[in-house]
């Protein structure tokens, strides 16, 4: 009897565990073939699409898919491209031709743009982008050619394991007090005050400015609260999406943001949040 035949609900396998010896199925990511059986190469959940069997690992570095929203940090400025840390096996690549430059979408990239690439993004800068394509070597090519994407300001970064982040229709959410949360599928989450000006109305220079807006006491408190909730959820291996985060945020309102750092307070907050869901 094989696992695939008895599959109902998620099936967990560990390394070297036989998934199926059915010869009609194809082996996908996270599996290998031994004799006629398909064996798991990682610890994770078995997924089957038609005849293709894959194992999605429980804990691994981020492996992206085209169309993913990712949050990243510039690590290197190179020839017509930036290297971006996206929490993946390899640094992502952001080509100069894949960003919106001040002065209109249709503008051609000139040599002068090449010379002042650090004016747009420099080492350490945070950005949100979309996975566009993959190179032969598996590196991810990302783009910011939409006003949704671009440089990140007015907030802080929270890092969670990428496997906890759930795919959803939108990854840009506004929680409370005008605080925006951008949940990158790569496990980088940006919590910030929503810009008072929509990107469409921004002056060309403002798109890449390194200036924060004024952020008040209450907004900072909300940001801190959300960050602490996210860290608490990550510590307890709770999957993260907007609904769960919002529930955790609601449940945390009885405590101050500072109190959430205590493990037992966080525990009760998350317990109430998860039972309410």
């Amino acid at each position: 009897m094989t696992m695939a035949e008895t599959m109902s609900g998620p099936t967990f396998v560990t390394r070297a565990q036989v998934i199926t010896s059915d010869t009609s199925v194809m082996r996908g990511h996270g599996t290998y073939q031994e004799d006629k059986a398909i064996v798991s190469a990682v610890a994770g959940v078995v997924e089957q699409v038609n005849k293709l069997i894959t194992v999605r690992p429980l804990r691994a570095r981020y492996a992206g898919e085209i169309g993913d929203v990712v949050v990243g940090r510039i690590t290197e400025v190179g020839q017509r491209r930036w290297k971006v840390d996206v929490n993946a096996r390899q640094d992502g690549v952001l080509l100069l031709s894949s960003v919106n430059l001040p002065g209109g979408v249709q503008r051609r990239k000139s040599e002068s743009d090449e010379l002042q690439m650090r004016k747009f993004f420099t080492e350490g800068d945070m950005l949100v982008a979309e996975a566009q394509a993959f190179f032969q070597d598996g590196a991810m090519s990302i783009h910011t050619r939409s006003l949704k994407y671009g440089k990140l300001r007015n907030g802080v970064l929270v890092v969670v394991p990428p496997s906890l982040v759930l795919r959803s229709r939108s990854h840009f959410h506004t929680l409370a007090n005008g605080i925006e949360v951008i949940i990158g599928l790569n496990g980088y989450i940006w919590v910030c005050k929503r810009a008072s000006k929509a990107p469409e109305q921004m002056e060309p220079d403002e798109l890449y400015a390194d200036v924060n807006e004024e952020i008040g006491q209450q907004e900072r408190d909300t940001i801190a609260r959300i960050c602490n909730c996210l860290r608490g959820m990550a510590d307890r291996q709770i999957s993260i999406d907007y609904t769960k985060l919002a529930a955790a945020y609601e449940a945390s309102l009885g405590h101050s943001a500072k109190e959430l750092l205590q493990a037992n307070v966080m525990e009760t907050v998350l317990d109430t949040a998860m039972t309410r869901m």
Binding site: D125, N212, N228
Partner: peptide
Amino acid sequence: SVVERDFVERGVDLDLRTDGR
């Protein structure tokens, strides 16, 4: 990044750090 640093610095001015302390 420059803006992250600025965010932290201004938080210290307000006596409210990024984790609420």
